[in-house]
Write a protein that binds this DNA or RNA. Structure first.
Lengths: 340, 340
DNA sequence: CTGAAAGCGCTAACAT
DNA sequence: ATGTTAGCGCTTTCAG
């Protein structure tokens, strides 16, 4: 049985005995059509199982395709996976399909993905910018009407909308929580590479909190890692310092996982306080329960999609930055005090 | 500044002073071309930043587009997020772009997404089947050469490739672990809806292990939930039974999160053993460390992509089922014994 | 080795 | 209210 060709507009037209254009008109509610032809067309469409080919349409119209391009560093990270899910959820109602690529935080991979998305004439482009990536090349596309929204981090070299968590304020609040509980030496466990925007901002929040408390910034208390295993090692190194920190601030969910694991491994020590940026599903179940500065990745994805769709609908206002608040969730791990 | 139109084949041709077809030939290594024209074309392509429009190509060729359709229940679940990342990683080398949609385990949403993907003429279709979905309608597409691969669960009504973890064997091994440590009343915490294939298979593994140990199957020991919060409640209910279980088997990462949370809440009781299907990043950091039947979502995504690509390359062998082994990771929580 | 013409499925522009 | 023609960007087909 040869697989019969997918029906086309012409097939439907032939079936009904009208022109292709008439079918097109009915399907796109473009121009008038008599109720009767309308009904016959729709019935034929249903009968044949006709589905318009969106790519042929896109080629002809010249306008954007019904797709949304999204670049994230790693879909396996629940933060970005949730962002992606929320974006898809938010655009599906508009009949848009999600194109997703992962950059692994590599600017060249990001660039290649964006290039692919542009070639595909995506309706909107959502990008979690890789460290070091320059986005000036997107200016013409943006000027040409392509909504570009940066997620989680601002883009570089391009005035475009950006939706991101309040990294600095959140870190500040988390570290202030530790300070309020008497800690004076607080380690910072950041992501890598060090120039990663989220790391820098969260580190800045950390430093600001220290400064406000009249404490010096000690570089020795800052360590970085990109995997949970490495973060555990980094936490271990910090705690092995001659004058070790009495508390740790983990700069993201991966660092938090590493830190929690390291503390658990070292005899489940409870003499080191911990606050994490990003909440973890098991935060409450940990011992001690993990205090976290929770982001809202679904809200970030939604806001980014909505911002982009508003642009698509003609919003020509200035590029804006949409902050998505964090929320400190005190559970105990931030209130520990060592014997010091 | 009006955004200049994206260059087309014709633009490149004009620039070089050859025909569009010649440019096409060079770019697709189709037919011969003199080294000289070749060089001039490539230089013009680079100069103009020409990128072929894959949709125009797809329309003309009639064949599949350079996209891969993937339907998952929830990209925010790290299991599926990791699967998606691995799929994208595996197909990017072939110049394929990932289209991803989330079904929320709703067969109608799944169907709509697949319909969209088919209309877009994806090169391959990867689907995590929703409970209750029927896939017979895909037969013609598969017969027409579209590789269809089911992920995590088998499809229904269609003989297609399937790549999935060894749910039954894994659950069997996990429950056997509990039995080996003397447990005779083991609760099962499953996903919802109850007809969910993964739940059924894992429950079957649980039952088989009980049977082998000469133990009866007690329905009262089975509870189900689809969110961590509900799973915590379900665990609570099981442990509140008149003759409560001394151990729990959590049927997936969400149930595991709920179970762990509930045990932590109940005074961090250590008298209930726990084994989880699916590993958790914090498993080692929990107290007690969580024993898990680890799946390998990245391997599942890779294998699915590779199977599909092999089909695309002409593999016409029978539909096969590719099992991806689980691995029991004993960490302690499965070896606990209560006072009983 | 290269080009001209036709056509993929669809719709804009102009008929009627 | 409907049909015709032309053409989107690309590739197939057939000539050179």
């Amino acid at each position: 049985m040869a697989a019969s060709r997918r029906p086309t507009l012409a097939d439907v037209a032939r079936e009904v005995g009208v022109s292709a254009k008439t079918v097109s008109r009915v399907l796109n509610a473009d121009g008038p059509s008599s109720p009767e032809t309308r009904a016959r067309v729709l019935s034929a469409v249903a009968r044949l199982g006709f589905q318009p080919n969106p790519m042929a349409r896109s080629v002809r119209v010249g306008g954007p395709d019904t797709t949304v391009g999204l670049v994230v560093p790693d879909p396996g990270n629940p933060f970005f996976g949730t962002v992606a899910g929320a974006v898809e959820e938010a655009v599906r109602g508009r009949g848009l399909t999600l194109l997703m690529g992962s950059s692994a935080d590599d600017p060249e991979r990001e660039r290649a993905l964006v290039g692919t998305f542009l070639a595909r004439r995506v309706s909107v482009l959502l990008v979690v910018p890789s460290p070091g990536a320059d986005h000036a090349y997107l200016a013409r596309h943006r000027a040409g009407g392509l909504p570009v929204v940066f997620l989680d981090r601002p883009g570089s070299g391009l005035a475009a909308d950006a939706v991101a968590g309040t990294h600095r304020a959140g870190a500040h609040e988390g570290v202030a929580h530790l300070l309020a509980h008497g800690h004076r030496r607080i380690g910072f466990l950041g992501d890598l590479p060090v120039r990663l925007h989220t790391r820098r901002e969260r580190l800045a929040g950390y430093r600001a909190a220290l400064t406000e408390a009249g404490l010096p910034y000690d570089r020795a208390l800052v360590a970085n890692a990109h995997t949970a295993a490495d973060a555990a090692g980094a936490a271990r190194a910090l705690l092995a310092l001659p004058d070790p920190p009495t508390a740790l601030f983990a700069g993201n969910n991966v660092a938090a996982t590493g830190a929690v694991t390291e503390l658990a491994r070292s005899g489940r020590r409870r003499d080191v306080a911990l606050v994490a940026f990003d909440d973890l599903p098991l935060a409450e179940a940990l011992d001690p329960p993990l205090t976290a500065v929770a982001q809202d990745p679904a809200a970030i994805g939604r806001a980014a999609a909505e911002t982009a769709l508003a642009r698509l609908d003609g919003d020509r206002s200035r590029a804006r930055s949409v902050p998505v608040s964090t929320r400190l969730v005190p559970r105990g791990s931030g209130e520990l005090r060592g014997p010091g």
